[in-house]
């Protein structure tokens, strides 16, 4: 049955409309979870609020379990799901820049749009910074191209590298998530509570 766009059940425009609807729902849930607050997001780095880790890990294990089950019952064909190509050096540097931006600005790209939607000026400034970064990167891309595309690994999946079943990896991932929940619960108890 799915993915709907890959199998031609939903055309390109339909896919865009679906993305728009899912995007609205995603933004709504982010806002409801308090992700439009920079203090809440930065709390992960200072140890007084781990709701970001809890929400994202919960989303990841729910999504992963659902996908494996849906694949088994042939509701979706996981082989048709697009996997981004992996370039290790640029992925590592990109992750470091993303992390630095997260702690400095208090937002990630999605949450900044979410916060700007409820009128937060700092979020609008953050989006301006993102756009500026995109323009600079695009204009100077020839300088980085060699590094950007270095050591290509193709459309790599971690389960293919490890040679294990998707389901087994999901079980490991659930255990890692539960371990992370327990650890952050413990840290949060030790760190002085911050009111905001």
């Amino acid at each position: 049955m799915g993915p709907l766009t890959e199998l031609g059940i939903l055309n390109h425009e339909g896919g865009i409309l679906m993305a728009f609807i899912i995007g609205i729902a995603f933004g709504f849930i982010l806002e409801q979870a308090g992700f439009s607050s920079t203090r809440k997001l930065a709390g992960v780095f200072y140890g007084y609020d781990f709701v970001v880790i809890k929400v994202f890990f919960t989303a990841a294990i729910t999504g992963a379990t659902g996908l494996v089950l849906m694949n088994y019952f042939e509701v979706i064909d996981l082989k048709l799901i697009y996997v981004n190509r992996f370039f290790p050096p640029s992925a590592i540097v990109g992750a470091a820049i993303m992390g630095a931006g997260f702690i400095i600005g208090g937002f990630c790209p999605g949450t900044s749009v979410c916060a700007a939607a409820i009128g937060k000026i700092d979020a609008m400034a953050f989006i301006g910074g993102i756009l500026l970064g995109i323009i600079i990167f695009a204009e100077t891309f020839p300088l980085f191209k060699g590094f950007f595309t270095a050591n290509p690994k193709g459309n790599m999946k971690i389960t293919e590298v490890l040679g294990i079943k998707d389901g087994l990896f999901v079980l490991f991932f659930i255990l890692i998530a539960l371990g992370a929940f327990a650890t952050v619960h413990f840290i949060q108890k030790k760190v002085k509570k911050v009111e905001y």
Binding site: L7, T65, Y72, L171, I174
Partner: peptide, 25 residues
């Protein structure tokens, strides 16, 4: 509940993992 679901997906038999496109597609 999370662990139970994790065990269920871990013991499900593996599907064909060839990267080839399906005949219908």
């Amino acid at each position: 509940i999370a662990i139970i679901f994790g065990i269920i997906v871990a013991v499900l038999p593996a599907k064909d993992v060839k990267n080839e496109i399906q005949p219908e597609q």
